[in-house]
Amino acid sequence: MTATPPAGRPGRPRSEQTHQAILEATQEVLREVGYGGLSLDEIARRAKVGKRTIYRWWSSKGALVAEAFREDAARRHPTVDTGTVHGDLVSYLSALFSDVSSPGKKAALSSMMAEAQTGGDFAADFDQFIEDRRTLVRDLLERGVRRGEIAPDTDLDLSVDVLFGVFWYRVLTGDRPLDPAVAHALVAGLLQATRPA
């Protein structure tokens, strides 16, 4: 199975195996050294490809990192449907919190957030990564509204902010746990505040 290069970027169809090897190597290096220390030379070495292959398929280091994290997030945190909004949110957040506890993941995310705040080329790529995650959680909340589990006048964007606000605060400060107990407490508090009258 092969994938074609991005629109407007001529070249041979790319090997899906090579594509995946590059994304996995990017994840590895990022967890070890953070965004600032990320080297395309090292990614190419680990993926066993030429650096020109990376440049052919990605327009920048930021585009590569963003795709690597989007692909990893989609694989690790697929859309869930447990039958209740409580179950959906707890399932998603528990998986997210467990993932970020893996070695180097929290530091990698912190370095990406720091780089995005500089306003450089990576900012737009990172914003899209964040927006994809927000959309997934907002969809879970909208399903809760349709089921009658969440009040229809609930500010869903603010609710997403509440859930991810705790996540990012604890990622960036690094001194408080992110575990299933936190996921349960966070979801319980949000649903208590947004339940129908």
Rank of each mutant, 00 (worst) to 15 (best):
6 P>G: 06
183 A>D: 02
101 S>N: 12
106 K>N: 08
83 G>A: 06
195 R>E: 13
150 I>G: 05
70 R>T: 15
171 V>D: 04
91 S>A: 13
146 R>V: 05
56 R>M: 12
140 L>H: 02
81 D>W: 00
44 A>I: 07
61 K>H: 08
62 G>K: 12
54 I>M: 13
7 A>M: 09
47 A>H: 10
7 A>W: 09
49 V>F: 04
172 L>Y: 06
181 A>S: 12
49 V>T: 12
93 L>T: 01
113 M>C: 10
67 E>S: 03
26 T>Y: 06
105 K>S: 11
96 L>G: 03
24 E>R: 11
121 D>W: 08
124 A>S: 14
91 S>K: 05
178 L>V: 10
27 Q>I: 12
129 F>K: 08
120 G>N: 10
176 R>D: 13
37 G>M: 02
195 R>S: 14
100 V>R: 12
52 R>L: 07
38 L>R: 04
144 G>E: 07
96 L>E: 02
35 Y>C: 02
27 Q>R: 13
9 R>P: 01
85 V>C: 08
30 L>F: 08
190 L>F: 01
90 V>Q: 08
142 E>F: 04
97 F>Q: 01
174 G>M: 07
72 D>M: 13
168 W>N: 11
43 I>M: 04
182 V>R: 01
103 P>A: 13
145 V>A: 06
111 S>I: 08
191 L>Y: 01
95 A>S: 10
143 R>F: 01
81 D>R: 00
192 Q>T: 08
177 P>L: 13
52 R>M: 10
43 I>N: 04
183 A>M: 01
89 L>I: 02
26 T>G: 05
132 D>V: 06
83 G>Y: 04
102 S>G: 12
108 A>Y: 09
13 P>W: 05
159 S>P: 00
23 L>I: 05
106 K>L: 14
116 A>I: 10
101 S>H: 03
90 V>A: 10
21 A>Q: 12
72 D>E: 15
130 I>Q: 13
71 E>I: 05
49 V>Q: 08
30 L>Q: 07
79 T>A: 00
34 G>K: 02
184 H>E: 06
39 S>G: 05
99 D>C: 01
132 D>G: 08
48 K>P: 00
56 R>K: 13
10 P>R: 10
152 P>D: 14
74 A>C: 09
96 L>Q: 08
99 D>K: 05
4 T>W: 10
27 Q>M: 11
138 R>N: 00
107 A>K: 09
66 A>T: 07
186 L>I: 00
121 D>H: 11
58 W>I: 12
5 P>V: 07
148 G>T: 13
110 S>P: 02
71 E>P: 04
66 A>C: 09
37 G>E: 03
186 L>Y: 00
95 A>R: 07
167 F>D: 04
38 L>W: 04
189 G>F: 03
11 G>P: 03
142 E>L: 14
125 D>I: 00
178 L>M: 09
41 D>Y: 12
